[in-house]
Computed example of a mutant assay.
Amino acid sequence: MEWVVKIGGSLFPDHAAVLLEKLRGEESVVICGGGDFADMVRHHDERKGFSASATHEAAILCMDITGRLLSDLVDSSRTVRTLQECRNAIDDGFTPVLLPSQLLRYTDPAEHSWRVTSDSLSLAVAHMLGAKLLIATDVDGIYTERPPASDAKLINDISAKDLLSFGETSVDEALPELLIKFKSDCYVVNGKYPSRVLSILRAGASAGICTVIRGD
């Protein structure tokens, strides 16, 4: 398994289902963002002030929910909970959709805060698998300004060290720290265009419109 593809909650359900179907045969592992379900947890946390561990665990469970629902829409996928089940699903001809709560219960390397989202958690899983991470979201990549600012320009290549000063962008704040820690790169691409995702999986960043975040 060369790739972990994180399908952002902003693509759920319709764009996410199309992309998951297009990943048939690519031998990649899919992880879903928590989407509206995680946003609801965050909303109630702002009102009630739950503990960091409670909201972190709840947000991971939201990733399970979107993954389970998304897989139900795509016959070529199979939900899995362990790394071995990921490998078994691929061997059986399915695209594995990892429900990460069980795996991350004992192996989660990230802090428990809203600086950490499914982006960083997907990177942690990719690190366990020795795979590269592609984040499919609803924008083309990382921009100089937050879209829809008229002067926002797509950044095609950026170091994780430089990204540290950006704060939260189309990826979470903790992601560049983990990329540096793991000495890993990741790719951010617009998942509304599955052909862009497939081009990167097959040919790397030179294949299309995206941002490469370098962990060197």
Rank of each mutant, 00 (worst) to 15 (best):
E2Y: 09
W3Y: 10
K6S: 15
K6W: 07
I7L: 09
G9A: 12
L11R: 03
D14N: 08
D14E: 13
H15F: 09
A17F: 11
A17Q: 05
A17S: 08
A17G: 01
V18W: 01
L19K: 06
E21L: 03
L23G: 06
E26R: 13
S28W: 03
G33Y: 01
G35N: 07
D36A: 15
F37R: 01
F37G: 00
A38F: 00
M40T: 15
R42K: 14
H44G: 07
D45F: 03
D45G: 10
F50E: 01
A52R: 13
A52I: 02
A52M: 12
A54F: 14
H56I: 05
E57D: 12
I60T: 02
L61W: 07
C62A: 13
M63G: 02
M63C: 04
M63W: 01
D64L: 00
T66M: 06
G67Y: 03
R68D: 00
R68C: 05
L69D: 02
L69P: 06
S71G: 15
D72A: 11
V80E: 04
T82L: 03
Q84M: 12
N88H: 08
N88A: 13
I90T: 00
D91T: 12
D91M: 15
F94Y: 13
Q102F: 10
Q102H: 14
Q102V: 05
Y106A: 15
T107R: 14
S113M: 11
S118D: 11
D119W: 10
S120N: 04
L123N: 04
A124R: 03
A124N: 08
V125K: 07
V125D: 01
H127E: 13
M128V: 07
L133H: 11
I135V: 14
I135G: 02
T137K: 07
D140C: 06
I142Q: 00
E145S: 14
E145P: 04
A149T: 08
A149S: 15
S150P: 08
A152F: 00
K153E: 05
I155D: 01
S159K: 11
A160M: 00
A160N: 04
D162C: 10
F166H: 02
F166E: 09
E168Y: 11
T169W: 06
S170Y: 12
S170G: 04
V171N: 02
D172A: 11
D172T: 00
A174K: 11
A174D: 05
E177N: 07
L179F: 15
L179V: 14
I180L: 13
F182K: 02
F182A: 07
N190V: 05
N190D: 14
G191V: 03
G191H: 00
G191L: 04
K192Q: 13
Y193D: 14
P194N: 09
S195V: 12
V197K: 04
V197D: 01
S199M: 13
S199C: 06
I200R: 06
I200E: 06
L201S: 01
L201V: 08
A205G: 12
S206P: 03
S206N: 14
A207P: 07
A207C: 15
A207S: 14
G208A: 05
C210V: 06
C210H: 04
T211H: 10
T211R: 05
V212M: 06
